[in-house]
């Protein structure tokens, strides 16, 4: 961990509000982005997770041992808050174990628009955002967390496993299944109407 971060954490532990404020500003965008993806269907819940993450971190900062960097620890706090929030809400949809085979037992390719639409295509961009939000919302929270940490936040499988207290193979399995689920949802949403 950077020396500057260590000093800030130490000052924040000793009640220096300005130091804690600096730490918040360094990580608030990442934690908010994560919360918005995991709470895809309910922006209000993302706001709660965002606030609760930093309030919990503030209360538990003395327990932070510094054996991971602060951002990793904040991801863990936020992940635990998401898990507590959504595991109560059961109703887990069936996630394909790998993929549904077609008649020949093969995996099916999917067809949907490429990412990064041109800036003038605001409506199409909104459609993509809605598609991502609604597809994520259909997944169990465990899968949303893995997809968000790996594909949105860009963490490695090892870092994700550490944050979620999973094995690396379990992270990879959820990632693969989650991606296939999203791919099918995107395909269903964007498939051209039959002529």
């Amino acid at each position: 961990m950077e020396e500057r971060a260590v000093k800030l954490i130490e000052r924040a532990r000793n009640g220096d509000a300005a130091a804690f404020d600096t730490l918040i500003r360094s990580h608030q965008d990442a934690i908010y982005r994560m919360a918005r993806h995991v709470c895809a269907a309910a922006p209000g819940e993302a706001d709660d997770v965002f606030q609760d993450t930093f309030v919990t971190a503030f209360k538990k900062l003395k327990k932070f041992r510094g054996d991971s960097d602060l951002k990793t620890w904040l991801y863990r706090v936020a992940s635990n808050l998401c898990l507590m929030r959504y595991r109560k809400k059961a109703a887990r949809p069936e996630v394909p174990i790998l993929d549904r085979p077609d008649d020949e037992g093969n995996l099916r390719p999917a067809d949907f628009p490429d990412a990064a639409p041109a800036p003038e295509e605001a409506a199409r961009r909104k459609e993509l955002t809605d598609a991502v939000a609604s597809a994520l919302a259909e997944l169990p929270v465990d899968f949303r967390l893995v997809l968000t940490l790996r594909d949105v936040e860009g963490l490695s499988a090892e870092e994700t496993a550490k944050i979620l207290k999973l094995t690396v193979p379990a992270v990879k399995s959820r990632l693969h299944r989650g991606r296939l689920f999203l791919r099918d949802r995107f395909q269903a949403r964007f498939a051209p109407e039959p002529a």
């Binding site: 608030q28 598609a131 594909d151």
Partner: peptide, 18 residues
């Protein structure tokens, strides 16, 4: 299709800023 799925997930401006 897997690459496009990841690209869509990454590019959708779902996060924004607080």
């Amino acid at each position: 299709s897997l690459k496009r799925t990841v690209a869509v997930l990454k590019s959708a401006p779902l996060g924004g800023k607080p």
